[in-house]
Amino acid sequence: MTELGEFLRSRRARLTPADAGLSRPGDRRRVPGLRREELAQLAGVSVTYYTRLEQGQSRNASDAVLDSLARVLLLSDDEQAHMRSLARPARAARRSTRPERVRPAILQLIGTMRDVPALVLGRRTDVLAWNRLGHALIASHLDFAAPSQCATRPNMARLILLDAHTRDLYVHWRRKVEDVVSYLRLASGQHPDDAALTSLIGELCVNSADFASTWARHGVRDCGPGRREFRHPLVGELSLAEEILRLQDDPGQRLVLLTPEPGSTSAERLALLASLHAPAPADCVASPTGSIPVPAPAGSTAAVSAPVPR
Rank of each mutant, 00 (worst) to 15 (best):
R175H: 13
L69G: 06
H191W: 14
A118V: 03
E261T: 15
S23R: 13
A146N: 00
M113G: 00
L162E: 13
G33T: 02
D283K: 01
R269P: 06
P99C: 04
R59M: 10
G33H: 01
P225G: 09
V304C: 13
A146C: 02
G44D: 02
V47F: 08
V235K: 02
A187C: 07
L240C: 05
Q248F: 10
T125C: 12
R254Y: 04
P104K: 03
Q57S: 03
R153E: 01
G219P: 01
G219L: 10
L66N: 05
Q149R: 15
R24Y: 06
L4V: 04
V206P: 00
G202V: 03
S287C: 15
S208Y: 06
R269W: 08
L121Q: 06
R158P: 01
E242T: 11
V171H: 07
V180W: 01
Q253N: 07
A271I: 00
L186P: 01
R30G: 02
C150F: 12
L74W: 09
S148H: 05
W130K: 03
V116R: 10
L15V: 02
P288A: 15
Q55L: 09
A164M: 10
L86Y: 09
R167F: 09
I138G: 12
L73K: 08
V304M: 14
R310H: 11
A40P: 00
E79S: 06
V171P: 00
D210A: 15
V220M: 07
P154K: 09
P117K: 03
S199T: 14
S287M: 07
R9P: 00
R185L: 01
Y50W: 11
H165C: 11
E100P: 04
E229A: 13
D163G: 01
A216L: 05
A306E: 03
L257D: 06
L276P: 00
S291I: 13
G226S: 08
P99L: 03
T112G: 14
R30A: 09
P293Y: 05
V206N: 05
Q253E: 08
I201C: 13
P293L: 04
D67L: 10
T48K: 12
R174S: 14
R36A: 07
P32K: 04
A157M: 03
A241S: 12
L245F: 13
E37N: 07
P262T: 04
P293C: 04
D19H: 12
S305F: 09
R231D: 15
R95S: 13
I244T: 13
G5A: 06
D143G: 05
V180C: 10
R132G: 01
V308M: 10
P225N: 11
S46W: 01
D126F: 04
E79P: 01
H218I: 02
A90Y: 04
N207C: 11
H172C: 10
A296F: 02
R98W: 08
V47M: 10
L34D: 08
